[in-house]
Write a protein that binds this DNA or RNA. Structure first.
Lengths: 196, 196
DNA sequence: CCCGTTAATTGACACGGTGTAAAGTTGTCA
DNA sequence: TGACAACTTTACACCGTGTCAATTAACGGG
């Protein structure tokens, strides 16, 4: 069973993201994940000593599975700032619904678990920097609305990408993921791009 | 001590909001609140059988303390849609930092406690309706940017007012509450109001 | 003045989820 | 065959929530 080493770890992460995505978020227990992965609860602790370890590992697992880095790289090589904005928003719009369950679980722990707080804030800061880059592109192309500073525009974009928004739009308005992404694009354009 | 009936309840709520605001949010325990209120833990359960009861009561307590209803009423009687937008954003911008601790605590329970979920979503829906009203005013005054539907504009405004945003801007960017409110106003104007 | 009511107190406990610890099992590889 | 690693089972400590029962203190009305 030594070849199962990485296999089991991956199975745990798969089960974790599956449970966290499709449902009750922070109410998912370690034992639920273990059961879904077909192993004992203690085996989970063998791979992830603390709950926060599992959750942060799950975010990285999703990053790799979705090739987020590569896609974000692609988005930056688009021809104009306007297209880069669309691409960036599309990547995040599609990604957020995937991590929102994990995000909820991490946010719920943030107040009591320092490690979870740091992990989540690091993640948020990375998004923020991405927003700043995209807005910088817009400004360089002369497409940013004239009465917005780059800082303010970054904040707007970043607020729009808030994880909570997806959850609320989905639950309260019954939106699909496609609707959400399309909407994000339009809203981002309406907020940031100079009208002709 | 029968006259202490309402007094104790109020003292519990005061201690609760104080602890929840200035600090660790969902990590605040019933016993912490009891200690801060100078009573026993069981006395808290006497007034609020479940944790969710206390939290939802705390939100109502803050509403009344801050006269939120009255202020929102005033904001709607402002002369133009533009001024109404400013007033509405100011009320919520000042209110959100106060309830964000309670919001965090409620959100952390949402997945496991149905009552907490309903309470929070009701609250969010109320905000949403308010946003729709303000946007409707803008549209009636011909001030809404022409390429935005009222629905989309409502979503923008509502995303900007997300409770999470305040926390993140405060922690990651070190913003003060005044900065936040001023920023919200400007962003809302930039996003929604037709430029002349 | 006593009596009933009501709020609060103390102490004990059940429940559930996290995390730890120890001993036993199975499979692999040298 | 023996060492090693992953996983299993069982058991338990810890902590926060919520419940229960017995007790004390204060107030108001008869």
């Amino acid at each position: 069973m030594s070849s199962d080493g990485r296999n089991t770890r991956a199975r745990i992460l798969e089960s974790a993201v599956e449970l966290l995505e499709s449902g009750t978020g922070s109410a998912v227990r370690i034992s639920d994940i273990a059961k879904a992965a077909g192993i004992s609860r203690q085996a989970v602790y063998l791979h992830f000593p603390k709950r926060a370890d599992l959750l942060t590992a799950a975010t990285r697992y999703l990053d790799e599975k979705n090739d987020v880095d590569a896609r974000l790289g692609e988005s930056r090589s688009a021809p104009t700032g306007l297209v880069r904005l669309d691409a960036w928003v599309a990547v995040w719009g599609n990604y957020i619904p995937e991590i929102y369950g994990i995000g909820k679980a991490l946010m719920a722990m943030m107040d009591s678990d320092e490690e979870a707080r740091v992990a989540w804030e690091d993640r948020m800061q990375a998004v923020r920097h991405g927003c700043a880059a995209v807005v910088g592109d817009l400004a360089r192309d002369g497409q940013l609305v004239s009465d917005l500073s780059q800082e303010k525009a970054t904040d707007i974009l970043w607020m729009l990408l808030s994880v909570r928004n997806w959850e609320l739009l989905r639950h309260e308005c019954g939106w699909t993921q496609d609707q959400y992404v399309e909407h994000l694009k339009q809203v981002a354009r309406a907020s940031l791009v100079a009208r002709v």
